[in-house]
Design a protein around this nucleic acid. Structure first.
Lengths: 140, 140
DNA sequence: ATCATTGCAAACACTTTGCATACGC
DNA sequence: GCGTATGCAAAGTGTTTGCAATGAT
């Protein structure tokens, strides 16, 4: 817990209890949780927790650059603890989201295409849709 | 108008008046309209038009493959009359969406990365965020 | 007459806002 | 004590659903 406190502090984030717990959860979780997932995971421990606080916290975290927020499945906000550029696969069967590691070249190249046309590209998002390995294997 | 009727028919879409008008609008429009934009553009001509009909129609069009639907700005559904794979730039200043033509290689390569991991990739979306050429030029 | 299409109104799901309460230094 | 953080309730936004009215053949 001390570590978490320090990480937050080092990013200029006042380490309140809720913020620390949310951050801990994000660190230990690879599944691109939604706000609801975070809420469900913590509500039994922190019975007064509200979704407003989660939204506020995530927004703050995103501003401070310790998470990035993505909308990939057309409905819910997902949190991505992985800051490095990478792609996402949304499995249309099970709804899970997988990280797809893409060479930085792609991101750089794509960004360059936009910049060459006179735009100023800040971010490049790549998302895939399909059936994930697990769902593809068990043909139920 | 006859042409529109035939295009819809050829795709197995019953060419109702609303559907023809919506399709016409999409054809003449490159700006990735939202449902609201379509509604605003047609409501004076078709005073009884409802957004439900637009949603229904777009969904139908998407099923029949004459448009694709995208969520790029994290809020609204956008319609893309361009079926060929390409990227999109959302200008964070003016909110406009631009097509960015990307070599098919990128889409193919990215898809392959996912497939090599055992997934079955159906779609690849690339979206960029930044400041568009126009907004970058007039530094107001 | 029958079946498809339309469109109002209400429901929905996720997110944001307003504001009073509680917390931490 | 004072400024920040929290969280309830309400409002907001975009989309979907239920269903009655309308339209086309």
């Amino acid at each position: 817990m001390e570590k978490v406190r320090d990480i937050l502090r080092s990013r200029g984030i006042n380490p309140s209890y809720q913020r620390m717990r949310i951050f801990e959860y994000l660190q230990g979780n690879k599944s691109h949780p939604t706000v609801d997932m975070i809420y469900d995971a913590l509500i039994s421990d922190i019975p007064t927790l509200s979704k407003t606080t989660i939204y506020n916290t995530l927004k703050l975290f995103a501003e401070k650059g310790i998470v990035s927020l993505l909308i990939i499945d057309q409905v819910e906000l997902r949190v991505d603890p992985n800051i490095a550029p990478h792609a996402h696969l949304l499995c249309v069967k099970c709804g899970r989201i997988y990280d797809i590691e893409l060479s930085d070249e792609y991101f750089k190249d794509i960004r360059d295409v936009g910049n060459k046309e006179g735009h100023l590209i800040n971010e490049v998002w790549v998302s895939l849709r399909g059936v994930c390995k697990n769902c593809a294997e068990d043909r139920s």
